[in-house]
Design a protein around this nucleic acid. Structure first.
Length: 427
DNA sequence: TCTGGGGTCCTAGGACCC
DNA sequence: TCTGGGGTCCTAGGACCC
């Protein structure tokens, strides 16, 4: 048996964890740049606030119902997430952290330790709630896909009390019989349309389709999905996160920017960010891509017509893999110079590192001397200082002093668990 | 005025090798 | 000019996840 633990309304629950005055109120958390709603408390869902709606469309509801709005506070959510994950680690050896608010647990071999799975699930829920104030839902089943199904019911149907165990063919059959295929893990809006057109409406129906049909219409992914619904494990628990194959950052500016110098500063800052992530996983990058684009929603002030749009991107193959911020920044600047066009209002500049190889990887190259190791050692020292004294305390001068391009975060809560001056005071 | 960010995997087709 | 069988690597595009 496997288990899936999923935090309910995670970001909203984190905010609530440290501010009890939010209990019982509609809480929403926004995406970066205070753009769209990405998390909602149950009260906010009850007001029909949809996932992904832009904040400015919420004005009336906000006034009428006193909706509490928060900018996303990833420092807080990340720390709360690791607290939850460490709680799960007290129960079983193998925990796969699947996302910031979800984890799979491997219960294989724990049959005698936890003979009553329903009781086990309630224990986990109670401990998570007691130690973090985060409510979680739990689904237990023989495969990951079935765990997702079990979790779906556990979260939505009150009679399960937050946890559902699918451990017999009869229970699984009943769960799949009424389950909308569009809700399945691995079925997005395109496959949902395809399945609907073919008259396949429930998970049970998809499970019973012929393998040939599944492979032909949904590739091997569809085949695996159906096999998992039949109880055959295709996705195993991965307890060690594999190294990333690409690292990207592309946050929007807080306002549109036409000016190349400011875009350069933002780009240099973003390179600092991706290079830090690169060194953290002990990799080096073989190629760097820079892209620059305008805001597709923008109307020209004055005449209200759709603003003219531009999208530019450039990839540079590096002479040798490197993890040096300074070296990556200079190639990034060259790419930006090549794609920048005067006369547009830009919304974001992004950078992506690809062709990631282990940092100690050395490929003989006849035509140059290879990377300068001192640069990378220097960057690692900078990483340590910034970890200790705060992000961007030490950075390239080209990143500028006054990041006016920085994204908006007007309603940010405190970093309750990671900053001494933000810690709660008990009076 | 205001509309997120960061990833993975699979397939087909082209180019190439012996 | 046409002929067989067995491969690899790369890229673009499409699908999905949170």
């Amino acid at each position: 048996m496997l288990g899936l633990v999923d935090c309910n309304n995670f970001y909203a629950s984190c905010e609530r964890s440290f501010d009890p005055s939010l209990i019982g109120k509609a809480v929403v958390v926004l995406s970066n740049n205070d753009g769209c709603v990405v998390a909602r408390s149950n009260e906010a869902k009850a007001l029909s606030i949809k996932m992904g709606v832009p904040l400015f469309q919420l004005e009336e509801l906000r006034k009428a119902h006193e909706v509490k709005v928060f900018s996303s506070n990833y420092t807080l959510y990340g720390d709360m997430s690791s607290r939850i994950m460490s709680i799960l680690g007290r129960y079983v050896e193998d925990v796969e952290v699947y996302s910031i608010d979800e984890a799979f647990m491997n219960l294989t071999g724990y049959e005698s330790v936890y003979p009553d799975l329903a009781q086990f699930a309630q224990d986990v829920r109670h401990r998570a709630l007691a130690w973090t104030r985060i409510p979680v839902s739990i689904g237990l089943a023989p495969t990951k896909t079935l765990c997702k199904v079990a979790n779906w019911y556990a979260k939505r149907e009150a009679e399960h009390n937050g946890a559902l165990v699918l451990d017999t063919p009869a229970k699984i059959e009943q769960a799949l019989y009424g389950f909308d295929v569009a809700e399945l893990w691995g079925v997005g809006w395109r496959y949902a349309g395809l399945l609907k057109r073919n008259g396949i409406r429930t998970a049970a129906h998809l499970r019973d389709m012929a393998d040939d049909w599944l492979a032909a219409n949904m590739t091997v992914n569809g085949l695996r999905l159906a096999h998992e619904l039949r109880g055959l494990k295709c996705n195993l628990i991965e307890t060690v996160a594999p190294a990333k194959k690409a690292i990207c950052t592309a946050p929007s500016f807080g306002q549109v920017i036409p000016d190349l110098d400011l875009i350069r500063q933002a780009l240099t800052t973003h390179v600092g960010r991706v290079a830090e992530k690169l060194r953290k996983q002990d990799s080096a990058a073989s190629a760097i891509t820079v892209f620059l684009h305008t805001n597709r929603f923008r109307r020209t002030p004055g005449n209200g017509l759709a603003a003219k749009q531009y999208y530019g991107s450039r990839t540079i193959e590096l002479p040798h893999p490197t993890a040096s911020t300074a070296e990556l920044a200079s190639y990034a600047q060259a790419a930006l110079t090549a794609i920048y066009r005067f006369g547009y209002h830009y919304q974001k500049v992004g950078v992506m590192l690809t062709g990631l190889v282990p940092a100690d990887f050395r490929q003989a190259n006849l035509f140059n001397d290879g990377p300068d190791d001192r640069q990378v050692r220097l960057a690692r020292v900078v990483d340590k200082l910034n970890y200790r004294y705060g992000r961007d305390k030490i950075r390239l001068a080209a990143a500028g002093y006054d990041p006016i391009w920085h994204h908006k975060q007007q309603w940010m809560s405190r970093r309750y668990t990671t900053r001494w001056k933000d810690i709660l005071k008990v009076k």
